[in-house]
């Protein structure tokens, strides 16, 4: 698993490459929480284009970020998730509280209105 984060406008963009399981979710969580406060972001946008596999540890990781961001009035968005990953999110009902977008640009554009 490979993880990269950067700030765009007031969003923390999180690009994950590879497999999200219990082992990798922990380091993802720590890095995001650190950077979210360090860069003073409001929203978190996950770029899941290169995520090849995700188990329920990924659900827990995303819900956890949603709970944190909610306090600052922010949003969590998932962009470019493949069908299998989306299926896992749908099982958990997470698609009711988190928005999914086809591509990163649209996701950032939508968040532009939440400043």
């Amino acid at each position: 698993m490979n993880l990269k984060t950067y700030k765009k406008e007031n969003n923390l963009i999180v690009v994950i490459k590879g497999e999200i399981d219990h082992h990798t979710a922990e380091s993802v969580r720590e890095k995001i929480d650190d950077d979210y406060f360090k860069y003073r972001c409001k929203n978190i946008v996950f770029d899941f284009k290169k995520v090849s596999l995700m188990d329920s540890s990924g659900i827990g990781m995303v819900i956890g970020r949603y709970k944190k961001v909610k306090f600052s009035g922010g949003k969590v968005i998932v962009a470019e998730a493949n069908e299998t990953v989306k299926k896992i999110f749908e099982m958990s009902g997470l698609n009711k509280i988190i928005d999914f977008y086809k591509d990163l640009e649209t996701a950032i554009c939508v968040l532009g209105g939440t400043n």
Binding site: R29, D55, S56, S57, I88, M91, S92
Partner: peptide, 19 residues
């Protein structure tokens, strides 16, 4: 049971068996 977890502090979603 979906969403039941004995370890919420570890950010477990409780979805393992359901998945």
């Amino acid at each position: 049971t979906p969403l039941f977890t004995s370890k919420p502090e570890l950010e477990r979603s409780g979805m393992g068996f359901t998945v």
